[in-house]
């Protein structure tokens, strides 16, 4: 057997194994979708997939629940958080990496400690703090803490990318007459675009799926985000798994679709450290 043929067989085997593992891995999600597509009679069948397929559950669920409003809640909170995180982290990364302000390193290290703090330790004081501000059941009550939690990681990534940029570029901008803000806007930000994209996507995913704080802060169903609403439905649809899983599918869908769309940019931002322009 030639080496080439051996390589082909090895590749085929590996692909087969990967597909097998993938198939196993996808079972829960297929299961969820499948139950959602079942007629009520078969809802409790202990099988992975049943026929025939019906969309009744989906229709019922959409009709009966303000999913659009909940989706909007998630959207508003997440987009606002992402915007604030990208802005705040790029500004401070710039201050540390390019401006090299006095004491910026100390500040940087201090903010880094946030990464080591488990959210569990913070929910109690945050809840009380937000209550004091009167921000329970508001968008801003989630947005600002989320931003505070997300900035350190984004700051680390952006600072690293900015430091990798050639210093002469910033000096040339200075000689060209730019003040600090102009260097930030015209030079630093464009230079780290892949990192900005990565940070934005990551923050989007993390914020959209955040559970603990949302659970505590959002008690009115109207304000709840997609992430915490399933709890309500598990009670509502206890005897109706078909409907439950239909709604769960709809809830999980947006982020999955989003990820499929942006995954190339996301992975590219992640691996951008490898290839320097």
């Amino acid at each position: 057997m030639t080496g080439y043929a051996r390589a082909r067989i090895r590749s085929l085997v590996i692909h087969a194994v990967l597909f097998a593992v993938l198939a196993l891995w996808m079972i829960p999600q297929v299961y969820m979708l499948s139950i959602g597509l079942r007629a009520p009679a078969q809802a409790f069948d202990a099988a992975l997939i049943t026929w025939p397929v019906t969309f009744d559950n989906f229709i019922t669920v959409i009709r009966d629940n303000p999913l659009a409003r909940i989706f909007l809640n998630s959207m508003i909170v997440t987009v606002a958080t992402v915007a604030i995180v990208v802005a705040a982290s790029s500004l401070i990364a710039f201050a540390c990496a390019v401006l090299r302000l006095k004491g910026s390193l100390v500040l940087y290290a201090t903010l880094l400690t946030t990464l080591m703090v488990p959210l569990a330790s913070l929910v109690l004081p945050l809840a009380i703090l937000l209550k004091t501000f009167g921000w329970v059941n508001t968008y801003i009550g989630l947005i600002l803490p989320y931003a505070a939690l997300g900035v350190p990681f984004a700051m680390v990534v952006l600072k690293a990318f900015m430091e990798d940029s050639p210093a002469e570029l910033f000096e040339a901008a200075r000689v060209d007459g730019c003040n600090a803000w102009q260097i930030y806007w015209h030079v630093a930000l464009p230079l780290v675009r892949p990192a900005l994209v990565f940070v934005a996507i990551w923050q989007f995913i993390v914020t959209w799926n955040e559970f603990f704080l949302a659970l505590i802060i959002l008690t009115e169903s109207e304000m709840k985000t997609l992430t915490i609403i399933p709890m309500q439905y598990s009670g509502l649809y206890m005897a109706n798994p078909g409907a439950l899983f239909a709604v769960l599918t709809l809830i999980a869908l947006p982020l999955i679709l989003l990820y499929v769309v942006v995954q190339r940019a996301f992975v590219r931002g992640l691996t951008a450290g490898a290839v320097k322009g």
Binding site: L91, C96, L99, L107, L144, V151
Partner: peptide, 28 residues
């Protein structure tokens, strides 16, 4: 490092620091 040295530049670090102080440091 680029020389700027003016205090106004610490504004760059302000948003992140503010968020940290209010929502992380104070709660801790």
């Amino acid at each position: 490092g680029l020389r700027f040295g003016k205090p106004a530049l610490y504004l760059f670090a302000l948003p992140a620091t503010l968020l940290f102080v209010v929502f992380i440091a104070y709660p801790i």
